[in-house]
């Protein structure tokens, strides 16, 4: 019990420290502190509302999709199909970029090609379909379309460059590290 509490505090220590600071701010400057808590609370609610389905689908993907299947469709020799799948997977997802890390981890574990994982993250961060409609209504269609087209090339270029700039050994390290995480 005591050990469990200790582990909890150790893992959440930075958060707890900042929480205390925020509470002090709340006492010293009620207006700013209050706003800060309200924004945090709102963001937390937003986040918690999009995350459950992502993680459930992630768990199912992990359990049901065999490593061989993933390698076949997104692995080293998956070619253009793997690239398209990575784009689709990222674009269809919801949630901020940090929600993509666990997804990337599963892809790495199941033997997806490294550049395809980076493409998935790129698509996840910028070319999300529901977000595009939202972007068009807020910024106009010209803005959205131009950014969308540029982003597609950019995401592919970033993935290609990251893959090329890492040595074979460095990539092996990443895959090895992924296998130890969960």
């Amino acid at each position: 019990m005591k050990e469990k509490l200790f582990r909890f505090i150790k893992r959440y220590r930075l958060f707890l420290i900042l929480l205390v600071i925020n509470l002090i701010v709340l006492l010293a400057f009620p207006k700013t502190g209050n706003r800060s808590f309200q924004l945090t609370y709102q963001n937390l609610l937003d986040m918690l509302s999009v995350m459950p389905p992502i993680f459930i689908l992630l768990g199912l993907l992990d359990v049901w999709v065999k490593r061989e299947t993933m390698i076949k469709y997104m692995g080293e020799h998956s070619g253009i199909l793997g690239v398209l799948l990575a784009f689709f997977l990222g674009s269809a997802a919801a949630g901020p970029l940090y929600a993509a890390f666990p997804v990337a981890l599963v892809l790495l574990k199941k033997g997806s090609k490294f550049s395809n994982v980076i493409i998935m993250m790129g698509a996840w961060s910028t070319t999300k379909l529901p977000l595009l409609l939202f972007e068009a209504s807020a910024m106009g269609y010209r803005f959205m379309l131009l950014r969308f087209v540029l982003d597609i090339f950019g995401i592919a270029a970033i993935a290609f460059a990251t893959e090329k700039l890492l040595s074979k050994k460095e990539k092996e390290e990443i895959f090895k590290n992924a296998a130890t995480l969960d």
Partner: peptide, 22 residues
């Protein structure tokens, strides 16, 4: 597995949200 991977990023996530709020 779903719960575990969520709980894994939770400490950092809460921290990030607080920083943004501030």
């Amino acid at each position: 597995k779903a719960w575990k991977s969520f709980e894994n990023i939770l400490p950092q996530l809460l921290l990030i949200l607080l920083i943004i709020g501030m």
